[in-house]
Design a protein around this nucleic acid. Sequence first.
DNA 1: CGATTCTTTGAAAACAGTCAATCTGTGTGG
DNA 2: CCACACAGATTGACTGTTTTCAAAGAATCG
Lengths: 181, 181
Amino acid sequence: MQSKADFTAEEIQRIQAVTVLKNVRKRQFLLRVGEVWSFNAFVTSGCLRTYAVDARGAEHIITFGIENWWVGDQESLVPGQPARYNIDAVEDSTVALIKKEEFERLRRELPQFHEVINTILYRSFMAAQNRIHAAISYSAEEKYRDFLQKYPGFALRIPQHMVASYLGMTTETLSRIRRCS
Amino acid sequence: MQSKADFTAEEIQRIQAVTVLKNVRKRQFLLRVGEVWSFNAFVTSGCLRTYAVDARGAEHIITFGIENWWVGDQESLVPGQPARYNIDAVEDSTVALIKKEEFERLRRELPQFHEVINTILYRSFMAAQNRIHAAISYSAEEKYRDFLQKYPGFALRIPQHMVASYLGMTTETLSRIRRCS
DNA sequence: CGATTCTTTGAAAACAGTCAATCTGTGTGG
DNA sequence: CCACACAGATTGACTGTTTTCAAAGAATCG
């Protein structure tokens, strides 16, 4: 965060005071469907995924969260609302947790903090919009190429079946696409 | 906007001072691919669509903007960046335009305004995330049912081929889905 | 090593897209 | 007021893509 805006030492102090660092091991859950959750979570290292499991057991990855992005089912931050997605770690990871109320207070009282959050939200929205474009416009092969090009190197970091699940196709289809290229 | 937060008469005055209302007739463009654009646009009545046209001429609708939502290719607000999407009116519409610089100033100087904008951005992001979920998880038929259920009545308001284009399928496929139900 | 987890492959079936034709309703201009 | 053009919706036959199911091969980890 410090790279995004220059906070005073005092401000950093305040932010750190309400932040809890949590290690999440590969395959460990941060949040499960149905649980109630009241934290904002920022990934400081590693990679997590937010995903839904459908009636037939297939996983659908809504987002990956890597360093300097947040993760979380925002809708579950509505008080008392149960989570609609699972979140677990793709790699051993560390997340910074800030309780919803503390987070709101920081947002109100530190304009810089508000700005940084806004920027992240804005970036997230644009990324989501790009992804929608790809999802409704491209064939499986085009989606994969687009993914490689948009996030170079990331495909090497995660298992292939997660790429498939993120792109909305089966592992088998992705495997066949890769063969012919 | 007045319904979202109580502005003072003076604040409303300030907002109105920098707002230009523009009527856009059905099928008329607000923005074309490649143009440079520097406004934030809020729909006050009617309905607009933001869409891409692919190499083969097919349209892909990224978003609809109806009353009280904004429209626009946010990425084109980066200074000098040409728009990647077209925006035109689905019905005769009215949009409220605020120049990017004025908009930023309002955001800085009127906390209430900042809040309202944030809420809209937040809602937009969640809507985008829901749509991603549907796009990567559902079959064509499930997508259509989900759409009907999420936006009841909206399908009656716009031509069917636009629903198809929004959901990422062909008109013919949507037509066949509707027949069997 | 043995046990997972992950990837690849093949053949059949389901699904969605393409192309071309027809049908419908709407609005416009002669 | 009719005729016509036009945008939109539907249908059928066909093609192509993607999924499904089942099995076998790699790779990774304790």
